[in-house]
């Protein structure tokens, strides 16, 4: 548990971070909360030439609402989402997911953007961001891009982020309908990564039918999965038990799990189905109880 030697720099300005990233590319790793990177360094699974600590860069933290979006600074800690109780009723799924991330020590240090960029297939935020239709603001020297969550996760620890880019912000669209959501996670013990998890976010129209549906699956594939067929099966429908059960089956079909010490592929797929079914019931109950 002793890392290989590396250079460390903690710039005070984003421009400097971007310039260093442009200069070092794949030889550099960005350090935000460090809850994934530092273990990787200590296990010598990662041996970057330089570690760029963005902890001293201003303007990367905080949660705010503007222009129909909730904006989350990329370096916002999991703990800050957990305590953003004013998101209840709007983005229930974020509030339900945050306290299930690892343990309190890690939530105090780990960051939302760091977790998304790390793109562990068993990381919790990926599924949540797919469910809520988030967009990611990423910057490089001289350029800013906005990437939709759908398509961002490309494989284990692989995303649409380029080696010269850093994520600065997460934007989540919030509409005017009645919404509800939740996050269900199967873990072997507290602090464990998910064996299976599902994020659900539903908006109901004035007619009580599903106006939009977002379903993200965690730890059941090479990356976080958006269960698009299940989502489509809900939109425009009255959310009856049968409709929900059918959508949940489609979500289970969307899972591409591999057997491992946590269980068989069949098991994980079925838990994904069960979680989506339970999650949809909760989300719809909440949406029906919510103010428009």
């Amino acid at each position: 548990m002793f890392p290989a030697a590396f250079d460390y720099i903690a710039p005070g300005a984003l421009d400097e971070v971007l310039s260093l990233l442009g200069q070092h590319g794949d030889d550099a790793k960005v350090l935000a909360g460090g809850q994934s990177l530092i273990p990787l360094l200590k296990l010598r699974f990662a041996a970057p030439v330089i570690v760029i600590d963005i902890g001293r860069v201003d303007g990367l933290e905080g949660i705010s609402r503007e222009n129909g979006h909730v904006r989350i600074g990329a370096r916002t800690r999991h703990r800050d989402v957990e305590s953003a109780t004013d998101l209840r009723g709007t983005l229930d799924v974020l509030l339900d997911a945050a306290p299930l991330i690892s343990d309190p020590l890690i939530r105090n240090m780990g960051t939302v953007g760091g977790s998304i960029c790390h793109a562990d297939p068993a990381g919790d935020w990926g599924a949540v961001m797919l469910a809520v239709g988030a967009e990611f603001v990423v910057k490089s020297a001289g350029e800013e891009r906005v990437l939709p969550a759908a398509g961002f996760f490309q494989g284990p620890f692989t995303t649409g982020l380029q080696s010269n880019e850093v994520m600065t912000e997460i934007r989540i669209p919030v509409g005017s309908g009645k919404s509800g959501g939740t996050y269900l996670k199967l873990e072997r013990k507290v602090g464990d990564f998910a064996s299976v998890a599902a994020a659900v976010h539903i908006v109901l129209g004035g007619d009580g039918r599903v106006a939009s549906a977002g379903i993200g699956l965690c730890a059941v594939g090479a990356h976080s999965i958006k269960a698009t067929a299940a989502e489509a099966a809900l939109v425009g429908q009255e959310p009856t038990d049968d409709v929900i059960a059918a959508a949940a089956r489609l979500a289970g079909d969307a899972a591409e799990p591999k057997a491992d010490i946590r269980g068989s592929a069949e098991y994980k797929r079925d838990v994904a189905r069960v979680f989506v079914q339970r999650g949809l019931h909760t989300a719809i109950d909440r949406a029906q109880g919510a103010a428009a």
Binding site: L186, R188, S195, R262, G263, S264, E266, Y267, D270, V271
Partner: peptide, 11 residues
């Protein structure tokens, strides 16, 4: 007695 084993027995 992990959850996957119990599930498999039930299944």
């Amino acid at each position: 007695l992990t959850s996957d084993k119990v599930w498999a027995a039930l299944r």
